[in-house]
Amino acid sequence: MQSIFIQYIFLILIVLGLLVIANKLRLAYPIVLVLGGLALSFVAPFSNITIHPELVFLIFLPPLLYEAAWQVSWKEFWKWRGLIIGFAFLIVILTSCVIAVVSSAIVPGFTLALGFLLGGIVSLPDAVSATTIVRRVNVPKSLVSLVEAESLLNDASSPIVFRFALAAVLTGQFQFKALP
Rank of each mutant, 00 (worst) to 15 (best):
residue 72 V to D: 04
residue 81 R to S: 14
residue 87 F to T: 07
residue 21 I to S: 07
residue 28 A to L: 01
residue 76 E to H: 12
residue 45 P to F: 01
residue 6 I to S: 06
residue 162 F to P: 13
residue 43 V to M: 10
residue 76 E to A: 14
residue 59 I to D: 01
residue 77 F to D: 09
residue 74 W to I: 13
residue 112 L to F: 11
residue 38 L to Q: 01
residue 150 E to K: 08
residue 99 I to N: 03
residue 84 I to F: 02
residue 44 A to R: 09
residue 50 T to L: 05
residue 130 A to S: 14
residue 164 F to I: 10
residue 97 C to G: 09
residue 84 I to E: 03
residue 151 S to T: 14
residue 28 A to T: 05
residue 4 I to H: 12
residue 57 F to M: 13
residue 121 I to T: 10
residue 43 V to Y: 11
residue 42 F to S: 06
residue 156 A to Y: 02
residue 147 V to R: 01
residue 56 V to Q: 02
residue 144 V to A: 07
residue 10 F to E: 10
residue 18 L to A: 12
residue 109 G to T: 04
residue 51 I to P: 10
residue 125 P to M: 08
residue 46 F to E: 00
residue 16 L to H: 05
residue 142 S to M: 07
residue 103 S to V: 05
residue 16 L to K: 10
residue 165 A to I: 06
residue 149 A to P: 04
residue 158 S to W: 01
residue 6 I to G: 06
residue 71 Q to V: 10
residue 39 A to R: 10
residue 125 P to E: 12
residue 172 G to E: 03
residue 46 F to R: 01
residue 53 P to I: 10
residue 132 T to D: 11
residue 26 R to N: 13
residue 133 I to Y: 01
residue 162 F to W: 11
residue 143 L to T: 13
residue 90 L to I: 13
residue 66 Y to V: 14
residue 96 S to A: 15
residue 27 L to Q: 15
residue 138 N to H: 11
residue 91 I to G: 00
residue 45 P to S: 05
residue 44 A to F: 07
residue 48 N to E: 08
residue 86 G to Y: 03
residue 87 F to W: 05
residue 15 V to I: 15
residue 113 A to H: 05
residue 4 I to G: 07
residue 91 I to W: 03
residue 19 L to N: 12
